[in-house]
Design a protein around this nucleic acid. Structure first.
Length: 213
DNA sequence: GACCAGGCACATC
DNA sequence: GATGTGCATGGT
């Protein structure tokens, strides 16, 4: 069965090709990046990640040991650095208390249960939790972000008042439950959003889509 | 100098 | 449940 979402994907994939997401060297880097990129331009996040790498601190046990104050200074370029340092620390406490600091152990439990656990961590909302599940742990969970909502809205595929879970359900009920597909699909929507949506509310994706041969 | 970027928690109604 | 606000840097 080929639905509307499959056709949109085929068209976008044909135009943009693979996006190679998430740009990171490890699952832990994906998680740190997911928290740092909250409402923040990726180039600022990359600077912060590189800074952590330069100090050889981009490992769970290392970040768990350093002070929140030092962490905040190291991730300054990512913006909201105080609150993000606190959020990273809160996640690390969760990781060490529940899974002895092991992402492998964390990945071993049921995806639905883990999602609930992640959502209970202060500072991890639905998008961050799902980014961790999909891009760090390779679980078949669709990630929804502002680009996703904006693009679907412009194509009248969702309602204005659609909530996170509504949009996520729309993808997950109409696509094959496949982490590789979910990975590429969300990444390609972000690519489309970045490339086409220069301003906040241009009605441009529709025109752009029609031009993708 | 204004606007924007791969959210989230919290207060208030 | 909906709406408003604080959090902050760096590129355009």
């Amino acid at each position: 069965m080929t639905g509307k979402l499959d056709l949109i994907y085929e068209k976008l994939y044909k135009h943009f090709g693979p996006q190679h997401w998430w740009p990171a060297d490890s699952a832990f880097e994906v998680i740190v990046g997911a928290i740092l990129t909250q409402n923040t331009n990726w180039s600022n996040v990359r600077k912060a990640l590189n800074n952590l790498k330069k100090h050889k601190l981009l490992k769970p046990e290392k970040l768990y040991r350093i002070s929140q104050k030092r962490l905040a200074a190291l991730i300054r370029s990512a913006g909201y650095f105080n609150i993000k340092a606190k959020r990273l620390k809160t996640f690390l406490n969760f990781l060490f208390q529940s899974y002895q600091g092991s992402l492998k152990k964390m990945s071993g439990i049921d995806t639905g249960i883990l999602r609930q656990q992640l959502l209970s961590v202060n500072g991890i909302g639905p998008e961050t939790a799902d980014s961790i599940l999909l891009y760090a742990l390779n679980k078949p969970v669709f990630v929804v972000d502002t680009y996703t909502k904006r693009i679907l809205l412009r194509h009248c595929l969702i309602k204005e008042n659609a909530r996170y879970e509504d949009i996520q359900d729309f993808f997950m009920k109409n696509l094959k439950r496949d982490a590789k597909l979910f990975n590429e699909y969300h990444a390609i929507l972000v690519r489309l959003g970045k490339e086409i949506c220069i301003k906040k509310k241009p009605r441009c994706e529709i025109c752009a889509l029609k031009n993708y041969k």
